[in-house]
């Protein structure tokens, strides 16, 4: 296991492999998303209670899924990076953070827009909404920490420690917010505890979730490749500057 990770963690091998996979993955994403959008927006029936607003779900639920799955994969990459000291794992964690934050933001916004017709208010302090909001703040903290520490190696390891601390604390936050919410639950909020989801809604939902996940993977690959190329460019520039200095010293 460790050995196979080592093999893929070679940046040159990663660049070659991801470059070959990327066009196909992007095509699969586009295909899945267009099928999913057709099923979700046109082919699926409106809900008998919620009407057309139920279609919000096909964007909201996949975003919320990626908000947490994105953080989980980020934490995994951070742990791999800390244990095996692989810059590639750190680079992929860094690449995933803004994507996860964006999907978390999408989940919050679509949740608020969906909440208006369903709950009568854009924002209610629902337990799920609240813990997703805290998750969003943790994403922001992770990104901000990357921004302020200049040295790549130091920033990579410091952000990873924070990411793992967040991963340990997130279940506790989730639990405390659930508990807090039952304590303060306003009576006016109607819950959406409907019957089990019918397959006419479940199929487009699953296709959309698959499409969103593929999109996340493709964008992560692209951003990781960019990160590697940027680092390579920076080190080339550094070499050039050093060579220039040596030449300059010889001439002067």
């Amino acid at each position: 296991m460790a050995k196979s990770i080592q093999r893929f963690a070679n940046p040159a091998r990663f660049m070659a492999l991801s470059g070959a996979v990327l066009p196909w993955a992007a095509a699969a994403t586009a295909l899945t998303l267009s099928i999913g959008l057709y099923l979700a927006l046109i082919a699926s029936p409106p809900d008998y209670q919620q009407g057309e607003t139920v279609r919000m779900m096909y964007v909201h639920v996949p975003s919320a899924w990626l908000a947490s799955a994105g953080y989980a994969s980020m934490a995994l990459a951070c742990a791999v990076g800390l244990i095996w000291r692989h810059p590639l794992a750190f680079a992929s964690a860094k690449a995933m953070a803004p994507l996860g934050a964006a999907f978390t933001f999408l989940a919050l916004v679509t949740g608020a827009l969906w909440g208006k017709p369903m709950w009568g208010a854009y924002w209610v302090w629902d337990a799920r909404l609240t813990s997703v909001l805290v998750l969003f703040f943790i994403y922001l903290g992770y990104i901000a920490l990357w921004e302020v520490i200049e040295d790549f190696g130091r920033a990579a390891r410091a952000t990873s420690v924070f990411c793992l601390a967040g991963a340990v604390n997130l279940p506790v936050i989730r639990f405390s917010v659930d508990w807090w919410n039952t304590l303060h639950q306003p009576a006016s909020v109607a819950r959406l505890d409907g019957p089990a989801i019918h397959s006419s809604i479940l199929t487009p939902l699953l296709v959309m979730a698959l499409g969103f996940t593929l999109l996340f993977v493709v964008l992560t690959l692209v951003r990781t490749r960019t990160e590697i190329m940027e680092r390579r460019a920076a080190s080339l520039e550094m070499q050039q500057a050093q060579a220039g200095m040596i030449v300059g010293a010889h001439n002067g």
Partner: peptide, 15 residues
């Protein structure tokens, strides 16, 4: 940045 990264982790203690 310190406040940005620490405050979310304080949520359970506050609650």
């Amino acid at each position: 940045v310190l406040s940005l990264i620490v405050l979310p982790l304080y949520v359970p203690a506050l609650i």
